[in-house]
Design a binder for these strands. Structure first.
Lengths: 224, 224
DNA sequence: AGCGAAATAGCACGATCGTTCAGTTAATTC
DNA sequence: GAATTAACTGAACGATCGTGCTATTTCGCT
């Protein structure tokens, strides 16, 4: 590997760190230079502009996110197991509060929701991309027969993402140690509400009887 | 009202507008001055520092939030009706995408989750305050008999907040017009999952049969 | 080893930030 | 209406931002 490439990836590494703490908008060329003990212009030269740097960081973050959350889930068999692993890997990232790294997707959502431009476009595209991935998994769970035929995968993902966001909020801002457990509980309840049970006839009675994880007194994680 | 007081509230008004668009951290004294056509130092003089201004803005935002979301709900009778109105008033705020005003609590959550200091403390305190208010409403819904005796109000609020965050995300960043409808659907399903039904015996069978809003093919709001 | 290219440093620029302070205008009080 | 106080202006400061330009160092290849 050429020298330029390895400093470039070192820059990306530091930039990812900073962006996780202060958001993409809080990412600064000077801060990267200081951390890497090199000049601002030295850092700058590797990307044509700050915006290009931010987009590169966003892409790199997305790449690692997919590698970390989605790829491992592909080893699981199609359907609910895969979906559950995805969620669980995701929660693992939220749980690491000690090393303060907020999710770039979460901070970026409020940084760019009113700020049009290339970064916002890239952010939307990147989020869409792994949302499609999750949607595919949810649809598989349906076609494989793990979920009822009348389940709505998009609605499911909407609510799952809500659990993630709420956990992120409570764990990181409110420092609530129960946040992750609550998200897991909600996830379990959510799945149960659209799971097809072997003893229930799916087609004849759409209002069959599932079990509520909410009602099971859990003081422990659903995936302990 | 003295002259100073009315410019002060004019400053707060502009500041609220800006903070809604660019977050509390994106709030700038120069921007306020420009919008009000007065000098930076003139704006500055009304608050001892930028930080004090930010805190004042946060308090004012919280005040309006409570007036807008919680106070009207107190006219409803205790229990689920009150909780439902709270949620509905809240969703109304999310829905107004045309005038770009993101929620300060949402943007602030990722701005300050890794940034200790007075603003973060105030933000946590303010959020705690209306969370307590909602928790009270949920507890009333339980004691009044609208919710099952084994329902977990804190878990309920955690998931409701998730729906709000997800709606905020999808409506504002992703520009998904279905976002609010999805949140309403999730809310209805959530309530149904812990609602006490008149025909079901609450104590004898914790796994009684509720109805799932998820399964009702809604192309319309649950509170149309 | 030496040469060309790539990588990095150093410096300066205009802008904008929060903040200070002396001076001026405006509002309030008597 | 004059005196007093409150409100506001304007200029300046030091910091930091992204960026452009020109040296200088370092790498990679023959």
């Amino acid at each position: 590997m050429k020298k330029g490439d390895q400093t470039r990836s070192a820059i990306l590494g530091s930039a990812l760190d900073i962006a996780s703490r202060h958001g993409l908008e809080g990412l600064t060329i000077g801060a990267i230079a200081e951390r890497l003990e090199m000049s601002k212009s030295g850092v700058f030269a590797h990307f044509g502009s700050r915006e290009d740097l931010q987009i590169a960081v966003l892409r790199e973050y997305a790449k690692r996110f997919v590698n970390d959350v989605f790829f491992p889930a592909l080893k699981e068999k199609r359907g609910l197991p895969r979906l559950e692993v995805m969620f669980e890997r995701w929660m693992d990232r939220v749980q690491r509060v000690d090393i303060p790294n907020g999710c770039v997707f979460v901070s970026g959502a409020s940084e760019y929701d009113d700020r049009p431009g290339p970064i916002r476009d890239e952010m939307v595209a990147v989020i869409r991309s792994w949302q499609r991935e999750m949607l595919k998994a949810a649809n598989q769970a349906k076609s494989v027969g793990h979920l009822r035929s009348d389940a709505d995968p998009e609605q499911l993902l909407f609510e799952v993402y809500g659990l993630l966001l709420s956990a992120h909020h409570d764990a990181r801002l409110m420092r609530d140690p129960l946040a992750v457990a609550r998200a897991r509980r909600g996830f379990a309840r959510l799945l149960d509400s659209c799971r097809k049970h072997p003893d229930a006839d799916d087609s004849s009675d759409a209002r069959a009887v599932p079990r509520y994880a909410t009602l099971i007194p859990t003081n422990q994680s659903a995936f302990s």
